[in-house]
Design a protein around this nucleic acid. Structure first.
Lengths: 351, 351
DNA sequence: ATTAGCACTCCATGAATGCGAGTGCCAGCC
DNA sequence: GGCTGGCACTCGCATTCATGGAGTGCTAAT
């Protein structure tokens, strides 16, 4: 109780200065350099006392006796939560983002462009999840016969997302029958959400048992197979991983290997990004906060992005814990908004 | 002239022993250890004399005065070309390859499985180019209207490869018109090779100028847009890159970074693999032989793979120059053959 | 409450040292 | 002539030691 009161204005100012200094220099910072800091007019000895308190609180930590202090994860956390003064985006960065993301069509393209912009401009790794709408409308479906009972299903959702899948039918169907089935499905179900289509299919199947309309029955069965387990794996685009190999903090080959393994297995990263999607605005995981070992020495700055008023994905930047948060945070924020706008077909203003 | 004659049977035996020893131990090998080698009955002094000759010929090289010798690129080259005794594939490796590649449908899947098998079983990086057929047949085409003049084209080639693309038409077309266009194209061009279709389209366009059949004209124009620049970029699946981070030879962060950058830019790797595709059978690039800087400290063992009698792609293993060539070579060879078989629809025997 | 001073700790650096491994060369042996 | 044993030499590596610098913690004075 009493301890927390030690966190007065001055201690916080000092912590802030220390973190900023460490971020810019990468060296443990001692009382002497802080004392010379413009904003601070205290003797090294005083600063040492305060630092000692900060260390007791677990906000900073000394690698060894005669080294300066380094922020701990809690220290960084306090810094980004309360002390940080975000810098506005540099204007040439902003214009490059605008240029890159404006007026692009073809969603898969714009996603990787966004990721590349993130990694190129921050010199760290950029990640963007593929957009994923909650409500998926069926637009069009088509069947093509392959050998025997194998049928290639192609269906389009949400304007222009093309999916394809191979299903096995219970009996061999002629091209004409397949065409007929597709016609039926398109006529009845196009324009409805996939969820409601699945439901309706089940109902149809029961009703039609009595009517015994064979062709409709085939169509419904095939559609069920097609939409079954259509839970497309979430996926993401990651760029600039190699940038991470330049940071001395991550030069431990073993750690780096773990990190890159996580990148290629994708699963861990997806879990992590999923969590970010739930929250609104910019989310930050510092070091071990993520709870995933490979990221122990990394920080992740993310923001969800939305099309219209629906959150469809997450993007972010991965870098060493020691990163320039005050720049990265607005950067991620703006990129998320611009990407959302670029993906929104309605907002595309004719210029 | 005289020098090359020094390469008698004994020198070659010695070089072989040296390379084998270095590959297995990773340490520069000295005259003493070679002298103790079972097959060699020579004193260290004699071996030193021979090694001195081999060094003059540029086949081996001494990191420093009091270290043993290490094979140079030429040494490795001579070794793999003339001295190497390939070991038959270990039976459990073989069975895992069989299991993994047999009876898979859906070509994109089998490619990544192959790559993963390569990397998992060799503990190095595996790479497989996507198969690319010379002759591409048009199977089916479909148009879906988007906003204004934007049209989503979906077309299927070679049985089951689905492509999609957005084109801009010169005027707004109704769904019925689009359907009609697709019907026309499917009726006339389905089953023909894409090259011949492109040709025929040009001819049609000229002929129809006179007949002024508007709907056919629209169809032909749209098809031209759809197939235009349909040169899909060559691509490959790379797995197990992270395995490379375990090798001490590649622990130089700067080299490693260059290598991984090449991996993510893809271009360099594609060039390299393209060269391999031209040659038949197993191809090997040792160290700088590839001519691409990032690969200076790597070796690449590749083989093209074929469906039927047509070469459609390349696969291989990337690892440090010091790798167990006598195992990797048959491994790559067999994998290529099995992958070819797995991709061949005709060879799939009903079991 | 703040500060100056001082003793102390620890790291980094560089020089000195010994050890082990391996070579090159020479002289002798078959 | 080819092979071998022996020997001096070189080099790298690990260890040790001394030194200097940076930074702290504590205490006494203001």
């Amino acid at each position: 109780m009493a301890k927390t009161q030690i966190l007065n204005e001055r201690s916080l100012q000092l912590l802030k200065a220390l973190v900023e200094r460490y971020i810019s220099d990468g060296q443990p910072v001692g009382s002497r350099v802080l004392s010379k800091d413009s904003k601070i007019n205290l003797s090294p000895a005083t600063i040492r006392n305060v630092m000692s308190d900060l260390e007791d609180l677990g906000l900073i930590h000394s690698p060894h006796t005669s080294a300066g202090r380094v922020p701990t994860v809690s220290g960084y956390r306090l810094f980004v939560d309360s002390l940080l003064t975000v810098k506005p985006l540099e204007s040439n960065d902003l214009s490059r983002l605008h240029q890159g993301l404006k007026e692009r069509e073809g969603s898969s393209d714009v996603i990787s462009i966004a990721s590349r912009l993130l990694s190129d401009l921050t010199k760290m790794a950029g990640v963007v999840t593929l957009p994923r709408r909650e409500v998926v409308y069926l637009r069009h479906i088509e069947f093509l016969p392959l050998s025997n009972t194998r049928v290639l299903v192609i269906f389009v959702t949400n304007e222009q997302e093309v999916h394809n899948k191979i299903i096995h039918t219970s009996r061999v169907l002629s091209p004409a029958e397949l065409q007929q089935a597709a016609n039926y499905l398109n006529a009845v179900y196009a324009g409805h959400s996939l969820a409601s289509v699945k439901e309706a299919l089940l109902k149809d199947l029961q009703d039609d048992q009595e009517q015994v309309n064979q062709s409709m029955l085939d169509a419904v069965r095939m559609a069920q197979l097609a939409f079954d387990q259509n839970n497309e794996k979430e996926d993401y685009v990651l760029t600039g991983e190699t940038n991470l190999m330049g940071f001395s903090e991550l030069s431990n080959m073993d750690q780096l290997k773990k990190l890159f393994e996580a990148f290629s297995q994708k699963q861990t990263v997806i879990h992590l990004l999923d969590q970010c999607m739930k929250a609104d605005g910019v989310q930050i995981y510092i070091g071990e906060e993520s709870g995933y070992r490979p990221f122990d020495h990394c920080s992740l700055v993310t923001s969800s992005y939305s099309v219209g008023d629906q959150v469809v994905g997450v993007l972010g930047v991965i870098g060493p814990t020691r990163m320039a948060y005050e720049k990265i945070i607005p950067f991620v924020d703006v990129t998320a908004k611009l990407l959302g706008a670029a993906l929104n077909p309605k907002s595309s203003t004719p210029s």
